[in-house]
Design a protein around this nucleic acid. Structure first.
Lengths: 156, 156
DNA sequence: ATCCATCTTCAAGTGAATTGCAAATAGAGT
DNA sequence: ACTCTATTTGCAATTCACTTGAAGATGGAT
C-alpha cells in the first residue's frame, strides 16, 4: 500500500522517460524536433492525467503555437513507444498518462468532489495476473477504478 | 457451435430488467414503444457486451429498420435508468452491458479482437475494500479492466 | 375519441481525433 | 558546412461515433 512517489524536484525527474523516448526515436529513424521536445516536456509537467486539448491550450498559453494535430501525433508517438497509456471515457474524451516501467493504473475516485488518488497494491496485481492466466489471457495492462467518498466528502 | 437462443417467449430470464425498465418509464412519464421493446429485447439477447452498431445491424437483419439514432437513444435511456453501463475504448468505440443489481465490473478485454470476459474474484474485492479504507474512502463501486491477448489471439 | 407530450425518423450537426499534402526541417552522408 | 531526402509540421479537410433538430407519428391519460 505504498504510494508511488515520483520526484518533484528540479533535477530532471523523468530521465528514464527521455532516454527511452530517445531510444525509440533512434531505433525507428524518427527525428528529434523542437515540437516534440516541448510537447513532451509540458506533457510531463502536467502529469498525471493529461487531456490532449488541455495540453494544446497550455502550450498555446506558453507561446508555442503548434498545431493540435502535432500534439495528437506526439501523444500517439509516445503511445507507440509504450511510454504512455490512453484512458478513454464514455463521453468520447480521453486522457493520457505516463506509463512507468512498473506501471500502475489504480485510482481512488471521489464520487463527490472527483478527487483522484493513485495507489498501488502488490497483492491485487498478483491476483490480476492469476485471473488472466486462468482465462488464458496474456496481461498487458490494467485499469482499476474504485469509486467512493473521500475523507473530506464523508457524509456526517 | 451452440448459439445461445433467446426466445421471444414469456420465460425470459430478464424479468427484473423489464420490470425495472417499466418502473423507470412510468416514473418519468416515458412511453413504451415497439422500437424500445424490440431494441431492448435484442440488446438482452446479445448480452453481455453490446456494440451499438452491431445491435443496429442485428435489428436490420431481423427486419427491424429502426434508425441508428433510436438505438442510441434507447441505450442512453437504459443508461439513465441505471440498467446498463457503458465501457469506452480508446479508439472511440464503446460497448454496453447489463448492470445487474449485484453487479461486478471486472473484465478481461482482448486488445486484439476486443472480446470481453467477465470475472469475479473475491480476494480482489476484499483487497479493494482494504485499500479504500486505508485512504479513508468509503467504497461505493469499482471497475477493473485487464487488457491482454485472449487465447485465440495469442501471437505465435 | 381527443389531446398533447413523448417518440421516431432522417438528415444535419458535433467534437475528438486522424489524414493528405505541400512546405519545412533534422540529421546522415559527403 | 552543404546537400539530400526521409521525416515532420501546419493547416484544412476528413473520419467516425454519437447527438440533436424538426416535423410528422404515436402512446396513453382523460
Amino acid at each position: 500500500m505504498n504510494k508511488k512517489v515520483q520526484s518533484n524536484s528540479d533535477e530532471t525527474p523523468y530521465k528514464w522517460f527521455w532516454r527511452a523516448l530517445d531510444d525509440y526515436l533512434v531505433k525507428n529513424s524518427l527525428k528529434q524536433t523542437k515540437q516534440r521536445k516541448v510537447i513532451v516536456q509540458e506533457f510531463l509537467a502536467m502529469n498525471p492525467h493529461v487531456d490532449a486539448e488541455q495540453l494544446f491550450e497550455r502550450l498555446r498559453k506558453m507561446g508555442y503555437y503548434f498545431g493540435l494535430a502535432t500534439v495528437y501525433r506526439t501523444l500517439n508517438l509516445l503511445k507507440d513507444a509504450n511510454l504512455v497509456d490512453q484512458l478513454a471515457f464514455s463521453d468520447g474524451r480521453s486522457v493520457f498518462e505516463v506509463n512507468t516501467p512498473d506501471s500502475h493504473h489504480d485510482h481512488l475516485i471521489c464520487t463527490h468532489c472527483r478527487k483522484v488518488v493513485e495507489f498501488e497494491n502488490e497483492e491485487i496485481e498478483k491476483l490480476q495476473l492469476k485471473v488472466a492466466q486462468h482465462y488464458g489471457f496474456s496481461l498487458e495492462s490494467h485499469r482499476l477504478d474504485l469509486f467512493g467518498r473521500c475523507p473530506d466528502c464523508m457524509p456526517v
